[in-house]
Every structure is written in C-alpha cells, then in structure tokens.
Design a protein around this nucleic acid. Structure first.
Lengths: 221, 221
DNA sequence: GTCTATATGAGGATAGAC
DNA sequence: GTCTATCCTCATATAGAC
C-alpha cells in the first residue's frame, strides 16, 4: 500500500514538504483556487485571478504558496487521500464482492459533491500535470494504480465466487466503471432530479443487471 | 437537425469562413497540431511547437491559419461532422432500438482510433474553449445536444417497445453510456488485447445484460 | 510558402516597504 | 499578511523581405 503523500509516517499528513504551515486562510485559498482551476483549467487560471477572487494581490499569494503548482498539488492530494481512505474502509468490511463493489460505487459517486473541483481538475489537467518536468506529480499514477488494484481484486473475487460473469475482463470492466463515475462531474449538479446517492443506485442497477428486460441473453464462453 | 458548421447549405463544408483555402498541407498541419493539443493540452501547446514539428517557423503558420483557435476549431469540427453523419446513418436503418443502440455504441468506439486526438482535446479542453469570449465554439454545445437527442430517443423507443427496463432514466443512461465510450480515449491504445470493436462488444454485453450472473434481481417499479 | 525580425502583451515570480 | 513595483520570460501575432 502506497501512501499518497510519500511520507514514511502513516498519519494523514496534509501537505508536501515545500509548502508552508497549516492555516485556515491557506485552506480557504486552496478551495478557492480549485474552483477556478476546475472552471477554466489549470493553465488558463492566472495567479492574479486567484488572488483577485481572494481579495488580495497576486504577490501576496506567494506568502502562502511557493508556486501555482503547489496549490494544485494540494487540491489533488487532499482528494486522493480522502478517496483512498474511504475505499480502504470499504474493503475492510470483508463483505461479499458484490456488496463491496456496490459500496465502492457509492463511495465514488459520493465524492462528486465534496470534491467536485478536484475531480474536474484531475480529469482535465491530468495529462498536462503529468507532462511537467520532474516527478512532482508521480503520486497521481501511484494513487491510480493502487485504486485500480482494489477494484480489480474485487471483480476477480466476484468472478471466482460466481457472483460476476466470467466472460468480461476485470481490468476493462474496472476502467469502464471508474470512467462512468468520475466523468459524471462534468454534468452532475447538486439540486437536480437525482442526488449522488440516487445516481449511484441507478448505476448499480444497470451495472449489475443490465439495461435489457426479460430473459438474459446467453452468457458467452 | 442542426448543421455543425452552421451553413445554410447542407453540403459537408469543411471550414469556418475565416479560414484559408483547402489544401493538403493545411490538413497535415491540423492533424499534427491535434496530436500536440491532445498530448499537452490546447493552451500548453505553443504555435512554436506546432511549427517546429512541421519543420517551419511559427510565423509561417499564420500563412495557413489566422489564429491558434482556428486550428483547434478545425480539429473539432472535422470530428463532429464525421460522428454525426455516422449516427444519422445508423438511425436511418429503422432497426429495433436495441439493434440501433448497439450500432451507436459500435460507432462511438470505432471513432476512438481515427479521431483519438480530437476526442482527447474535446474532453480536456471543452471547458476552456467554452469559456472563451464570443460564440465561436457554441457549435460544440449544439452538436452535443443533437447527439443527446439521438441517443435518448432510441432509449425511450426501447422502453416503449419493452426492450429496455423502464426503471432507468433515459437521459441519465445516455450520459453514462456516452461517458464510458469517450473517456476510453484516455487509456485505449491500439495494439492492446482488444481492438475498438472488441471494446464495443464487451461494453454492449455489460450494458444490456449486466455484470451479475444467474437470476435477475427483481426490476423495481 | 517560408523566413527574419519584432511588436505587444501577459504570466509567474521576487524584493522589500508597510 | 498584504501591497507596491518590477523583473524576466515566453506567448501570440504581425509586417515585409525573399
């Protein structure tokens, strides 16, 4: 198991070494920046814009952060730490695979609201952040790998236990589930017909039982 | 029905009015730029990079295009025109909803290879392009709306005909299908275990019949 | 159709006063 | 902790020679 923040300690440390001391002010600025990153993209967001929105001047931001990258770094780490912690909790339940997988789907959708901005940034700016020189954002890939292992293990367990059909590829199935959940940030808005819980149940229904009515078509293989 | 390129003529015109005359050279430059846009993001891609890759200097690009936006515009239009044309053809078959929907899924996946770069740009830079001043990229939303209508109509037809379960929301279901297909550009690479055709069949299986084995759980409502 | 040269502006970041 | 002022770099885009 790999710690998102690369510390030896297993405690949930919040920040990369280069960052300044913890503070509410700082957290507020991070949240604020995250919203703009999500709306316009990381690169299109200027430090002047972030500062404006916070009611200060751009130079003042550098009292809190040593660079724009540090801000987005903190946005993403916070999300990933929360997500992985919740997945781990679900896995510890030792329930049957279908139950665990359902719960993981619910966890995914439930992060859409609290972490909407972070998820949006992660999806839109992933390629760019990964293309930056240095290994600063390598933890993105490590976190992704760990999450993938969790999901794929459950799918395989479910196949071994006879709960899931065996003519689907576990990794491929995981990717499709993952994509379906996260991409929902693009269109999900709180206050619509369904909340994230409803979204999750809707998806679980289709995922497990399919869109077709009536008799199951024969299972290949 | 709305024409992607907003012309009165229904012929498939390839370019916005501001752009220069058609040419193979120009098309080559567009394809080349699309790859870089996809890799690094639209904003992070400089005209110097595009020109470099083409073996010319940045100033020379402006002989072919009047701005960087014009290039990405052409990338996206080309993809959307092709996609919508193919959807329309599928709808004209007048087959039953399940068959039509399957075919639309296949069409979606089949665009992953030829239009990989355009799809990537569309996903990563959609928010940014939409946030630009002016109505230049409004056609993105119009195209999206038209496609949504096509899908949702088929899902509703399928429900009315008894082929699809009625306890799912057509629009929501469409969105999840759409997302699952397009986001696959993030990880799909030609030459893997499955080609896009295989991907499509895999997804159609899970979509219609579900991941679970054995007896169907009861259909709610 | 490409090059040279350059205008013009914006962005990230810094230094030091307050 | 914020402001003022500014540096430095790099971006898009232009003008005109070849």
């Amino acid at each position: 198991m790999e710690d998102v923040n690369q510390r030896k300690s297993s405690t949930a440390v919040k920040r990369a070494p280069a960052a300044g001391p913890a503070s509410e002010r700082r957290d507020h600025l991070v949240k604020l920046a995250a919203e703009i990153f999500a709306r316009k993209g990381f690169q299109a967001t200027t430090v002047r814009e972030i500062a404006n929105e916070a009611g200060i001047l751009s130079g003042s931001l550098y009292h809190h952060f040593d660079s724009k990258e540090t801000i987005v770094d903190e946005v993403l780490r916070t999300f990933l730490e929360d997500l992985i912690a919740r997945y781990r909790a679900a896995l510890e339940s030792d329930a049957d695979p279908r139950t665990v997988l359902s719960e993981m789907v619910r966890i995914g959708f439930s992060t859409l609201e609290p972490h909407r901005a972070a998820i949006t940034v992660m999806q839109n700016d992933w390629n760019y952040l990964r293309s930056l020189p240095g290994d600063r954002f390598d933890y993105l890939v490590r976190a992704e790998d760990e999450v993938e292992r969790m999901w794929v293990d459950q799918i395989k367990r479910g196949q071994a236990a006879g709960q899931f059909r065996t003519d689907v590829d576990p990794k491929l199935t995981y990717r499709m589930i993952r994509d379906t959940i996260w991409v929902a940030v693009r269109w999900f808005r709180p206050g619509g017909r369904l909340n994230t819980g409803g979204l999750a149940e809707h998806y679980i229904t289709v995922l497990f039982d399919g869109l077709a009515t009536g008799a199951r078509t024969s299972q290949k293989s």
